[in-house]
Amino acid sequence: LKKGSQVEALFSYEATQPEDLEFQEGDIILVLSKVNEEWLEGECKGKVGIFPKVFVEDC
């Protein structure tokens, strides 16, 4: 996944840490960066945070 690409949430993700990005199933997320193999940083609904890659798929 490249910076600036968009992904769609397959499942809702509930934030458990302040840096987490919370979203609902079906939301479109703009990928800002790759944190590591399992986590991405993205923006959704004006909020920025990190989230697990397994919760999303390429649009």
Rank of each mutant, 00 (worst) to 15 (best):
Q6A: 02
Y13K: 08
E38V: 06
W39A: 03
E37R: 10
G4H: 02
L1N: 12
S33P: 05
Y13C: 07
G26H: 07
Q24V: 09
K34V: 15
T16S: 11
L32P: 11
K47M: 00
V56S: 08
D20Y: 13
F55A: 13
E57I: 02
I29N: 11
E19K: 02
Y13D: 03
E14R: 13
L1F: 15
V31I: 14
Q17K: 15
E43Y: 11
Q17L: 09
V54T: 14
E41F: 14
D27F: 05
G4R: 05
K53R: 14
V54S: 15
I50C: 07
I29E: 07
D58F: 02
Q17P: 00
E14H: 14
F11G: 10
G42I: 06
E25V: 12
P52E: 03
G4K: 10
E57G: 12
E25K: 15
V7C: 00
E43L: 06
S12R: 08
K45F: 03
V56A: 02
F11N: 13
P18E: 06
E19W: 10
E19R: 09
G4A: 03
G42S: 03
C44E: 01
E37F: 02
S33A: 11
S5K: 14
S33I: 08
N36P: 00
K2H: 14
P52C: 05
K53D: 04
L21N: 05
Q24W: 11
I28C: 05
L1G: 12
L40S: 02
L40G: 00
E38H: 08
I28L: 09
I29S: 07
V54W: 07
F11L: 08
D20S: 05
S33K: 14
Q6T: 14
I28Q: 13
Q17T: 14
W39F: 06
C44A: 09
I29R: 07
L21M: 05
D20R: 05
P52N: 01
I50H: 07
A9G: 06
P18Q: 01
E38N: 11
A15F: 04
G4P: 10
T16A: 06
E22V: 07
E22N: 03
E22Q: 15
E14F: 09
I50R: 11
T16D: 07
F55Y: 13
E19V: 06
I29F: 02
V35T: 01
I28A: 10
S5V: 12
I50W: 00
F11R: 13
F51L: 02
K47Y: 02
L30S: 15
E25M: 09
D20H: 15
P52M: 09
G46Q: 01
K53I: 01
G26E: 06
A15I: 08
E19D: 05
L21P: 05
V56R: 03
S33E: 01
Y13T: 03
E37D: 13
L32D: 12
T16Y: 10
G46V: 04
P18V: 03
S33R: 15
S5W: 05
E19A: 10
G4T: 04
C59P: 13
Q17A: 14
G46W: 08
L21Y: 02
A9V: 00
P18R: 10
E38W: 07
F23S: 03
S12L: 11
E43K: 09
Y13P: 10
S33V: 11
F55S: 02
E22H: 10
C44N: 00
C44Y: 06
C44K: 04
G26A: 06
F23R: 10
A9K: 09
K47V: 08
E25L: 02
Q24S: 14
G42H: 04
K2W: 11
I50T: 05
L21K: 02
E41P: 06
K2V: 08
S5P: 01
N36G: 11
V7S: 09
E57N: 10
A15R: 07
F11C: 15
G49I: 07
N36K: 13
T16M: 10
S33C: 06
E57L: 05
I50M: 03
N36C: 02
E14Q: 13
E57P: 09
K3I: 14
V56F: 09
T16G: 10
I29M: 03
F55L: 14
S12C: 04
G42K: 02
E38Q: 00
